[in-house]
Simulated scan of single mutants.
Amino acid sequence: MTEEPRLSEQEIIERLAPTLSRTTRIRAVAALLAGMAGTVFVSTLWWSEPGPLPGHTHLAFALFTVFCLLWTGYGGWLLTRRVPLFATDQVIAAWISLAASLATTAVVAVVAVQRGTGTGPALAVGGLFIAGTLALTVRAHARRAALLRRMRELTGRDHR
């Protein structure tokens, strides 16, 4: 009988975790398309508004445009990866979501104060979104740490 060639630890890891799984590819395309569509929609809406807009409205449109561009960049970045990510993509997505939730809640609360409608509902709904994205961020960091720990066990090397 012939003996099969031995694989290195790195080759085993690469075979176990495909570089870009079908699910990851779908998520990347969805983030890219949603980010592009959002950027076009928000910026078109922003620039087509008649008359001068208040400063806080410009700030809100700018923030929403930036977050859409972040999702576009995230989707493009994810599609170009050719190495195992070890859940880095999940950590990045979680941080974008958390930042968007925080900024949106702040903008909505400021608008509520300026209109005198009360901040209770805005802060309650925003708080739910922030709590959810914070939980996802903590989970993404834990998953990444577990994957890196497992890789160190298998290879004896540190990959950050």
Score class of each variant (00 low, 15 high):
1 M>K: 15
1 M>I: 11
2 T>D: 04
3 E>L: 15
4 E>T: 10
6 R>P: 12
6 R>S: 14
7 L>I: 02
9 E>L: 05
11 E>P: 09
12 I>Q: 06
14 E>C: 14
15 R>S: 08
16 L>A: 14
19 T>Q: 06
21 S>A: 15
27 R>A: 14
28 A>P: 12
29 V>D: 02
30 A>N: 09
30 A>H: 06
32 L>I: 02
35 G>T: 02
38 G>K: 00
39 T>A: 12
42 V>I: 15
42 V>Q: 06
42 V>N: 05
43 S>F: 03
43 S>T: 13
45 L>Y: 11
46 W>H: 09
48 S>T: 11
52 P>D: 02
52 P>L: 15
52 P>T: 14
53 L>W: 02
53 L>T: 13
54 P>F: 05
55 G>I: 03
55 G>Y: 05
56 H>Y: 12
59 L>Y: 10
59 L>D: 03
60 A>E: 07
61 F>T: 02
61 F>W: 09
64 F>R: 11
64 F>G: 10
65 T>Q: 01
65 T>W: 06
66 V>Y: 08
68 C>K: 00
71 W>F: 14
71 W>S: 07
73 G>D: 03
73 G>I: 03
73 G>C: 04
76 G>N: 02
79 L>Q: 06
84 P>T: 14
85 L>M: 05
87 A>F: 14
87 A>E: 03
89 D>E: 13
90 Q>V: 04
91 V>M: 07
92 I>D: 01
94 A>M: 01
95 W>F: 09
96 I>M: 10
97 S>V: 01
97 S>I: 00
97 S>R: 02
98 L>H: 11
99 A>H: 03
101 S>G: 12
101 S>E: 04
101 S>N: 05
103 A>Q: 06
104 T>V: 11
106 A>D: 05
107 V>R: 08
107 V>N: 10
109 A>I: 01
109 A>T: 13
110 V>P: 00
111 V>T: 09
113 V>Y: 13
114 Q>C: 12
114 Q>T: 13
114 Q>S: 12
115 R>K: 08
115 R>M: 13
116 G>C: 05
118 G>A: 12
120 G>Y: 04
121 P>T: 13
121 P>Y: 10
122 A>N: 05
122 A>R: 08
124 A>M: 11
125 V>C: 08
126 G>M: 08
127 G>L: 10
127 G>N: 07
129 F>G: 15
131 A>F: 07
132 G>H: 06
132 G>N: 10
133 T>F: 10
134 L>E: 00
135 A>W: 13
135 A>H: 08
136 L>W: 14
137 T>N: 05
137 T>Y: 03
140 A>D: 01
141 H>P: 00
143 R>N: 09
144 R>T: 01
144 R>E: 00
146 A>R: 08
148 L>K: 10
149 R>F: 07
151 M>D: 02
151 M>W: 04
151 M>C: 06
152 R>G: 02
153 E>D: 09
154 L>P: 00
156 G>Y: 02
156 G>M: 06
159 H>D: 09
159 H>P: 10
160 R>V: 13
